[in-house]
C-alpha cells in the first residue's frame, strides 16, 4: 500500500513551484540582456518591476518548506529535498536581483550610442541562462551527473568574462569619455558571471539532494 500520498503530493508541488520560479528567473535574464542590446527601456522596466514578483515567489516557497518541515517531520531524502529547495530559491532570487541590476544598467545607458557592439555579453547571457535551465533540469530529475556537466560550463562564462573585462579596460584607457557606459557594461559583465556561479551553486544542491554528499562543483 502507498503511504504518505499527501506528503508526496506536497513535495511534487514544491518542485513545481521552484520550477515556475526558475522559469521566471530565466526569462528575466534573457529580457534584461535583450533590453541592453536593443536599448529597450520598456523591456528594462518590466524586468525591474518583475523582480518583486520573484521575491514573492521565493517567500511563498520558503513558507511552504517551513510548513512541510513543521508538519511532516521529513527525514533522509525528504529532508534533503526540502533543504535543497530552501537553498535553491535563495540562489534563484539572487539571480533575479542580478537580472534586475542588468536592466538597471540598460536604463542607465539609455539610448546613448553604444561604445562597442555587444557580442560577448549576449553570448555570456545565453550561456548563463542555459546553465540556470540545466541546473533546474538536474533538480527536477535529481540527477547529479547533469548538475556536474552544467557546472563545467562555468569555465566558458569565466573566460568570456575576462575577455570582456580586458576589452572594456582598453576602451576606457583609450577614451576616458566612455568610462560611464563602460562601467555599466562592466557591472553587467560581472553580474552575468555571478549568475553562472549561482547556477553552479544550484548544481551543488542537486548533488547533495541526490546523493547526500557535499561536493564543490567548480
Amino acid at each position: 500500500m502507498r503511504t504518505r500520498t499527501t506528503f508526496d503530493q506536497a513535495l511534487k508541488e514544491l518542485q513545481q513551484d521552484i520550477l515556475k520560479m526558475g522559469f521566471c528567473v530565466e526569462e528575466a535574464i534573457a529580457k534584461a540582456v535583450e533590453s541592453l542590446t536593443k536599448q529597450d527601456m520598456i523591456l528594462a522596466q518590466s524586468v525591474i518591476d518583475g523582480d518583486a514578483l520573484i521575491d514573492i515567489q521565493e517567500m511563498q516557497i520558503e513558507d511552504k518548506c517551513m510548513k512541510l518541515i513543521a508538519t511532516q517531520s521529513p527525514l533522509a531524502k525528504d529532508l534533503r529535498r526540502i533543504a535543497a529547495g530552501l537553498m535553491i530559491i535563495i540562489d534563484l532570487e539572487r539571480i533575479a536581483d542580478l537580472a534586475s541590476d542588468i536592466a538597471k544598467s540598460a536604463r542607465r545607458i539609455g539610448d546613448q550610442p553604444l561604445i562597442k557592439p555587444l557580442i560577448d555579453i549576449p553570448r555570456m547571457a545565453e550561456l548563463a541562462q542555459k546553465m540556470v535551465g540545466e541546473a533546474l533540469d538536474a533538480y527536477v530529475r535529481e540527477d547529479p551527473k547533469l548538475a556536474e556537466a552544467m557546472a563545467a560550463e562555468d569555465e566558458l562564462v569565466d573566460n568570456l568574462h575576462n575577455q570582456v573585462l580586458r576589452e572594456l579596460l582598453l576602451l576606457m584607457m583609450v577614451d576616458p569619455s566612455v568610462v560611464d557606459q563602460a562601467i555599466a557594461l562592466l557591472f553587467t559583465n560581472r553580474h552575468l558571471e555571478r549568475i553562472a556561479d549561482h547556477a553552479t551553486n544550484i548544481g551543488e544542491r542537486v548533488v547533495y539532494l541526490a546523493t547526500g554528499e557535499r561536493k564543490e562543483l567548480n
Binding site: L75, A76, K77, D78, L79, R80, G212
Partner: peptide, 13 residues
C-alpha cells in the same frame, strides 16, 4: 539524513 539501505530510507520516511 543519508541512510545507505533503501529499506531503511523507506521505513524512516
Amino acid at each position: 539524513t543519508k541512510p545507505t539501505d533503501k529499506r531503511t530510507e523507506d521505513y524512516i520516511t
